Amino acid sequence: MNLELTIEDARWQGLEPLATRAIGAVLGHCGLDGDLCEISLLACDDARIAELNAEFREKPAPTNVLSWPAEDLAAEQPGAMPAQPEPDFTGEIALGDIAIAYETCSREAAETGKTMDDHVTHLIIHGMLHLLGYDHIRDPDANLMEGVEVAILGKLGIDDPYKA
């Protein structure tokens, strides 16, 4: 896979292998050739992600992860599978961009008793699924997305983050 990783916050030590593993798991689960896929990942802090959240979602607050799909692949029918991305004229599949914020991820991991690595893996998988047309606004879509997240995390040996 072609992963463009930009680390703006030095606390993101060891993110590249973790991101490569999470992204590879999503691509494999979705039947995509990772060698053709392009993804950009920004590892930043809460201040930067708050700026991005304000600019793109009109929510001037930090969040854990944001995604900008290169193409709208969302299904029209609630709970239906998104469309598969297609290679462009160069044979590559540009999937889009993800940003992830250190402080929010660290705080959430501590609050939920998860390791930082497991929580960040989950959030990268979540962000990747958004790039692939999954969403959680409508309940049937949320159920589908959660099920896919849990299946991918399970393949990586990570517990279901939605269990009470």
Rank of each mutant, 00 (worst) to 15 (best):
H136Y: 00
G34D: 07
A10C: 09
G79A: 02
S106N: 12
I137W: 08
N53Y: 01
G34Q: 07
V26F: 03
L73V: 12
P69E: 03
I158R: 11
M1K: 05
P17S: 07
T115L: 09
E86W: 11
P17W: 09
E16F: 01
G79Q: 01
A22H: 05
D117N: 10
D135N: 15
L95S: 10
I125Q: 00
L131W: 05
E76L: 12
T20D: 01
N2L: 09
L95C: 12
D35M: 10
A70Y: 04
I98V: 06
R21M: 06
P85L: 00
A47P: 02
N2S: 11
H119S: 09
P82G: 08
P62N: 15
K155E: 15
Y102T: 05
E111I: 08
A83G: 10
K163C: 13
I100W: 10
T121W: 04
H136D: 03
P60S: 14
T112S: 13
G127F: 08
Y162V: 07
D160I: 05
C44L: 02
A83T: 00
D46M: 02
L3S: 05
A109M: 07
I49K: 09
A75P: 01
A22P: 05
P78K: 07
A83D: 10
G147I: 03
A101N: 06
R48S: 13
L32S: 04
L66E: 11
W12P: 03
T104R: 10
T20S: 01
H126N: 01
L73D: 13
I98K: 01
E16Q: 05
D9K: 09
L27Y: 02
D88Q: 10
P161V: 02
L5T: 08
I93W: 06
T121D: 02
A109R: 00
I39N: 02
Y162H: 13
L3T: 02
A74W: 11
R107F: 08
L66Q: 12
K114D: 13
A22C: 03
T104A: 13
Q13I: 09
V26Q: 05
E58T: 01
E16P: 07
A25V: 06
D139S: 14
L27E: 05
I7Q: 09
E71F: 03
P17Y: 07
T104F: 09
K59A: 14
Y162E: 12
P87M: 01
I125W: 01
